[in-house]
């Protein structure tokens, strides 16, 4: 029973990661894009799948990867997320510099850009904070509050960004992936008793 459940969960997770990427790889739009633009787009899609993995790893929800091991992988996948986001923005910048400058300065005509840029800053800030956590001697409660707040910004920003973009992702698989990200985040927040952070210290 436990084993079957584990296999089922992993199969579901693999499908959630692979299907959206595979469907995007079949997009007709790719025929009219240069390699750098294509790579930038896929960096964004893969980044969204990493955002699905992050809360599952942090909460130890992936079978065979309980909290300590899951957390260790969570750090590496977090670093990968930073690289993917930089590749996403960098590749788009090479493709069309003025569009990316507009996005970064929040003067873009496209509503999804601002959501993506806010999520990007939250990812970078979360990574910097994670790297400096020991050196800054952050109290666990302060760390948790900061990290989980940034997580919320990352998840909401990335989902709205992805949904509003008319790109290579399939509509259905994009919505499904975004809903899964939302569900995984909610589940992890529940597992980690995130609501306790809203209470006063000794209240």
């Amino acid at each position: 029973m436990g084993r079957a459940r584990a296999i089922l969960l992993w199969a579901g997770f693999a499908a959630a990661v692979i299907l959206p990427v595979a469907i995007a790889a079949a997009s007709p739009l790719l025929a009219w894009r240069q390699p750098v633009y294509i790579a930038a787009g896929f960096a964004g899609i893969v980044a969204l799948t990493v955002i699905l993995a992050q809360p599952l790893l942090a909460a130890g929800r992936l079978p065979g990867l309980p909290a300590p091991r899951g957390r260790r992988i969570h750090r590496w996948t977090g670093a990968a997320l930073v690289v993917l986001v930089l590749a996403h923005v960098g590749g788009l910048w090479l493709t069309s510099p003025p569009d990316v400058v507009d996005a970064l300065l929040f003067t873009s005509p496209t509503p999804f850009s601002a959501w993506g840029v806010v999520a990007m800053w939250a990812i970078l800030f979360a990574a910097i904070l994670a790297a400096l956590r020991r050196r800054l001697h952050l109290r666990p409660r302060v760390w948790r509050r900061a990290h989980l707040s940034l997580t919320l910004v990352i998840v909401i920003g990335s989902i709205v960004h992805a949904i509003l973009v008319e790109g290579t992702m399939g509509t259905l698989s994009k919505w499904a992936l975004c809903l899964l990200v939302l569900a995984a985040t909610a589940r992890a927040f529940a597992d980690l008793r995130a609501w306790t952070l809203l209470r006063r210290r000794h209240g």
Binding site: P98, D99, D102, T107, S108, T110
Partner: peptide, 8 residues
Amino acid sequence: SMRGGSNN
């Protein structure tokens, strides 16, 4: 002029 109109 529209936002982003002069891009590229």
